[in-house]
Design a protein around this nucleic acid. Structure first.
Length: 711
DNA sequence: GCGATCAGGT
DNA sequence: CACACCTGATCGC
């Protein structure tokens, strides 16, 4: 939870993610994403009053964040006070003192943060120096190196100050499995269940928060089954998400909520109340996304853990692990890092101590904490690829590979090898259901569900959505409140709505390697290529598949090994993007704010581009979207022809380089894997962890990384 | 009645 | 495990 108080030393008149107390006096507001702990004071009457009295005061955020924010009626009053800043578009804004007329211009760049839809980091450049506020972020290894706007003239920018998401900035959170590992584990678990019969359904016990959407979209795409949610209105202008979620409860994948959903599940009922029409009890498993972490040299377990008869915990994290944070800082090399979050079981001083050796000054005076950079400003890209078989490969974000391809690739060998066996002796399943079903969303199964009388009395009927006509022939869906007419006007599904899979095209590169690749992948999965991933886990690393009464030992994910198959040439560094700065006055003159059609349709677009795509596990080719973006940006940045041109250039590069950059592993810069540099001995670690576990203050002489510049 | 805060829960 | 967020109790305006 963020404990950032809203203001940065360098630009104290701007408030970020905090809107109460003295932030009420800010000259500009910034919202990194729509989680409540970053919105404190945002709907307070005091702020609202101030807004109404001000001509200049604006809230700056990404298009998606605006969309989400304004979906809530409580924040509707912001409508005319929000200025959208396109992601990866340096934009000049003025901080104006309305009493004196004093003005300070700063350039703000939004960078995708990979935390939840719309989440961004803010890069500020101006007289206060260059500062990066990360908000909450999850960036895989190497992603900073692929953010063009963190670079200038082929080098990473000098960013002296970083305000950092330190949620997991603690060595005990050293490793968190990558998004792809986690996603793949969940996919396999879901597959193993829902293919048993159409009465087998899964409930994703997701907290009411944004951030699970990429899980939903991947599940939906994989199984051609939309995910049931209570409401969708926040995604109305995000077709890439909207296509994969539904308020139609007749699906086998649910992420719906009910105030007493635990009770429902215990009673083998889904929170939405749907049951099979023929009375056959639904077979429900629950999957609870939760963060699993692993210490530096601690044996990993699987990304799926069975916690009960029909309940599972699946690894899932919105935040970067310690090693990902280290990797990020190693690349940025800030002089000063300010923690935004105090990790659990720590205090502010602890975090600062942990961060010290990760800063430029400290690695300079002591010894290089873990990354012998040698120079403050590195060339952005010097090596093609580096060491294989170390942690880099271990936790490498093979996420840079278009995920769709990767997952197919993985599934092929996994399914062949293990899951297929696992599934082979299962009860006869509905012939209309096939693994990796080709059916259309929502009409995949022939089970007939109907409303249960005890259906929860929630108000989701207002979000009820009529599905395609042929649904009615398959499903019997009775409104939970027959007296309330369905609102058909709202988000009727149109057959001509672009489909998710039209957003990307198949690249033959990976698929063509499938035969060979699957073999090697299998071997790697057994530990050859990335031995450390599962090297010492030949044992109890069991992923439980619900179709088995006992555990099945299945390594459901080994994407780390994939990266090595997919290495590509480094991408080119675009010219300094600072040449293309968009200018915004205090008044919001952006067309996208007033034209819902064009502008909002792409409100998800900021996830374009290699890093953002990978951050989301998204895998569409961005060409189509980019074309739209360009259209909109032409309007949007009409104040600056430079900006428009620059943007198009960028877009063109992105689309042509997309695959290459996506295919890169994180080791595309010269940072050796951190564990190598540290070479912690097991004994040392044991001592360290014992102390940490005991809550002692750690004075580690042996561990340079922790002692840092403490001298 | 509303908001802020805290405790307790998932 | 933690995170994000909900609910309910309490207090003050």
């Amino acid at each position: 939870m963020s404990s950032f108080q809203g203001r940065m030393q360098e630009y104290p008149s701007a408030s970020i993610d905090r809107f109460d107390r003295d932030n009420l006096l800010a000259k500009a507001y910034f919202l990194s994403h729509c989680h409540k702990d970053h919105m404190k004071g945002l709907r307070a009457p005091a702020l609202r009053r101030r807004l109404e009295c001000s001509l200049k005061l604006r809230l700056y955020c990404s298009p998606v964040t605006k969309e989400i924010l304004l979906t809530s009626s409580k924040y509707k009053f912001w409508e005319n006070y929000i200025t959208v800043i396109e992601v990866e578009t340096p934009t000049q804004i003025s901080l104006v003192d309305e009493t004196t007329g004093e003005k300070e211009d700063i350039v703000v760049t939004l960078l995708p943060a990979g935390h939840c839809p719309g989440s961004v980091m803010f890069l500020f450049e101006g007289e206060g120096g260059t500062v990066l506020y990360t908000g909450d972020f999850r960036l895989a290894r190497g992603e900073a190196s692929r953010m063009e706007l963190l670079h200038s003239a082929g080098r990473v920018k000098d960013i002296p100050s970083v305000y950092l998401d330190t949620t997991f900035c603690d060595p005990k959170f050293y490793q968190i499995p990558t998004r792809e590992e986690c996603l793949n584990g969940i996919l396999e678990l879901v597959r193993s269940w829902i293919t048993l019969s159409s009465y087998h359904v899964v409930w994703l016990n997701c907290k009411a928060a944004y951030g699970y959407e990429y899980l939903f979209t991947n599940l939906s795409e994989e199984f051609s089954l939309k995910v049931h949610l209570n409401k969708l209105d926040m995604f109305n202008n995000m077709p890439d998400i909207l296509h994969h979620v539904t308020t139609d409860r007749t699906t086998q994948i649910h992420a719906c909520r009910h105030p007493r959903d635990e009770d429902f599940i215990r009673g083998t009922r889904l929170p939405c109340g749907i049951i099979a029409r023929d009375g056959t009890p639904l077979r429900i498993i629950t999957i609870k996304p939760s963060t699993m972490w692993f210490g530096e040299r601690i044996k990993r377990t699987n990304v799926i853990v069975r916690t009960g008869e029909s309940s599972y915990r699946a690894c899932f994290s919105f935040h970067s692990s310690f090693s990902e944070i280290k990797d990020f800082l190693a690349y940025i090399q800030p002089v000063k890092v300010y923690p935004n979050v105090v990790p659990m079981g720590r205090n502010f001083e602890d975090v600062k101590e942990i961060l010290k050796p990760l800063c430029r000054t400290c690695s300079g005076d002591g010894e290089p904490a873990y990354k012998p950079l040698g120079q403050l400003k590195r060339s952005r890209r010097s090596s093609v690829h580096e060491e294989g078989g170390d942690y880099t490969d271990l936790f490498d974000d093979c996420n840079l590979v278009p995920l769709k391809q990767k997952l197919r690739f993985l599934q092929r060998w996994q399914l062949d090898d293990e899951t297929r066996d696992l599934l082979s002796d299962l009860p006869q399943r509905d012939p209309s259901i096939q693994s990796g079903s080709m059916c259309e969303p929502s009409v995949c199964s022939t089970t007939e569900f109907f409303e249960c009388e005890e259906s929860n009395e929630d108000d989701d009927d207002e979000d009820e959505e009529e599905e395609e006509a042929d649904v009615s022939s398959v499903w019997k869906e009775e409104p939970s409140h027959p007296s309330v007419p369905l609102t058909t006007g709202e988000t009727v599904w149109c057959t001509d709505t672009p489909r998710w899979d039209m957003f990307f095209k198949q690249e033959p590169v990976l698929i063509s390697e499938t035969e060979e690749g699957s073999e090697s992948a299998k071997e790697q999965g057994a530990g050859s290529q990335s031995p450390k991933l599962f090297s010492d886990s030949e044992d109890g690393d069991s992923t439980y598949f619900p179709s088995q009464s006992s555990s099945q030992s299945t390594h459901i994910s080994e994407p780390g090994s994939q990266g090595s198959l997919l290495d590509a040439e480094p991408i080119h560094i675009p010219e300094n993007k600072m040449g293309c700065v968009k200018f915004l006055s205090g008044k919001d003159n952006s067309p996208s704010n007033t034209t819902p059609g064009v502008g909002k349709r792409n409100s998800w677009e900021h996830q374009r581009g290699n890093h953002s795509d990978s951050a989301w596990g998204s895998k569409r080719d961005t060409t189509d979207t980019l074309a739209n973006i360009n259209v909109r940006c032409s309007e949007h940045t009409s104040l600056s022809s430079n900006a428009t041109d620059g943007h198009q250039t960028e877009s063109a590069q992105s689309s042509t380089l997309g695959l290459k950059s996506d295919s890169q592993t994180s080791s595309d810069f010269e940072i050796p894997s951190t564990p190598d540099s540290e070479v912690p001995q097991p004994v040392q670690l044991n001592v360290l962890y014992s102390k940490l576990a005991a809550g002692e203050t750690v004075q580690i002489e042996t561990n340079k990384q922790l002692s840092g510049s403490k001298s």
